[in-house]
Nucleic acid binder design. Structure first.
Lengths: 255, 255
DNA sequence: CGGTACATTGAAGGGGCTCAATCCACGTGG
DNA sequence: CCACGTGGATTGAGCCCCTTCAATGTACCG
């Protein structure tokens, strides 16, 4: 069994707790349970694999700190990034439900993760319907991001794709307190952006430049500033709502 | 409340039961519970919407019979099909967890669906860990198909895309007994294939023709025959395994 | 100071798109 | 029974977005 260094002390509020708190008013007991889920942690160094394709895994992971990507590399070297995980996200689904993991997950920066067994999750669903609903909501959110990602590569132009990508990243980082009103630190290189959006590196570069020339976005020292959120959203056909909307009041009773 | 016509009698085994039976040996009691889930049904006519974007929904649906698509239409008319649901699939996720449904789901043929409330699902998870694991597996399967879909549009050529699409459809239809060893009835027009794969209609047509010219596939009267599964799989980088692999033995105990 | 990683820019080519015409099967109403 | 309309398949011509290949710039780091 690999060593399991503990993080000395969480620097900020546990990210999943923070994320779910934005949706639902959590009772102290519920906060305690959530924090508990995120307490036993493991550290993975930058560029190492968190999950390796073909191996077998027994638990989901909550990403506590850092950024990771799940991707597939075709035989000739083409690569497609399937999703980008930020703190507070679950990773390792669907790997934990297959005999062998289907995709690798790689740490882009040093990462801290907390394992959650399937049984633990089920018992949580049983005893905490409110938390269950909130966690299901975060899965639903992820499904929506997948859908938008598919629309990106399937039907949007390079300009629309990159615009949409920047806006989604801004919104997601805001939710966990890692971005302010209009700006954030870009955690990806242009090559990674290209592999996420199905574009070549030169074209990502040209597209970013055009967004700068059009004064919609500015990028300096890896800091992205969205100069005109409205205009960029219109260009990208971006609806913030798919990451926001949630209903709890009637959900538990009526569903 | 809309009328809820009951189907007279299921013509074949309930599709979700059939699907999960292929993975797990189900006890008679478990089969009964599964069949129960699929008993109260509603019929939706061809070309009508099962779920309408912007509306509010309280339950997931199990598709019992027919084919449906979830899709998004951009302001200028471009359309991206997000997924294709076949009998035995859950639909309405993530719609049921948002204040307003994010995407429409349309019946391509006359469809029969069975609603399942969130609470019912949770209680099932609690009382039937084996079924819970199997249902989670089917969600995992769907996630894997999403991933492959993303790779299709992001990094595969038109030829690879169409080849992969045909093989995935073959495999999925086989699981529910709607395809034989090498052939099936294509439920989509070329326009729909294009909207699923991010291609134009003329190019879908040319691509299908090339597959025919290369004697990999033949299509007549909407019947698709994969003439060389091996070669087509190699071309498409298709691994059947992502729709097959499942482990139950240790999952419930160890996870 | 050389090496590595990343960003940037140019030139040329191609894969897939748009636009357009044609064909075919089928249903429907006169 | 035929004329017509409609939905879908098929094919061609021209073009454009994005790719590939290549070179250069630049910051950082051992």
């Amino acid at each position: 069994m690999p060593p399991r260094p503990m993080t000395a002390k969480p620097r900020v509020a546990r990210p999943l707790t923070r994320k779910l708190s934005r949706l639902v008013t959590l009772a102290p007991g519920e906060i305690g349970i959530l924090d508990d889920l995120q307490s036993a942690t493991r550290v993975i160094r930058r560029n190492r694999e968190i999950i390796t394709e073909g191996r077998k895994y027994d638990a989901l992971l909550i990403l506590i700190d850092g950024v990771s990507i799940r991707c597939r590399i075709l035989h000739d070297g083409r690569r497609q990034i399937l999703n980008i995980a930020l703190p507070g996200d679950f990773i390792g689904f669907p790997s934990a439900f297959s005999e062998r993991a289907l995709y690798s997950i790689t740490a882009l920066s040093d990462c801290v993760v907390a394992p959650v067994t399937f049984l633990r999750l089920l018992s949580l669903f049983d005893s905490q319907p409110k938390l269950a609903a909130a966690i299901f909501w975060s899965f639903a959110c992820e499904a929506a991001m997948y859908a938008e990602h598919l629309i990106d590569v399937g039907r949007r132009s390079a300009l629309e794709r990159v615009a949409h990508f920047l806006l989604e990243l801004l919104t997601r980082l805001q939710v966990i307190g890692l971005a302010d009103e209009r700006s954030f630190r870009m955690p990806l290189t242009q090559e990674l952006i290209g592999d996420a959006l199905g574009l070549s590196v030169p074209h990502v570069n040209r597209t970013l430049r055009q967004l700068r020339d059009d004064e919609l976005v500015s990028i300096e020292e890896h800091i992205v500033i969205i100069r005109d959120v409205e205009a960029l959203s219109a260009l990208a056909d971006f609806e913030r709502s798919y990451l926001d909307q949630f209903r709890l009041p009637d959900m538990i009773t009526k569903c």
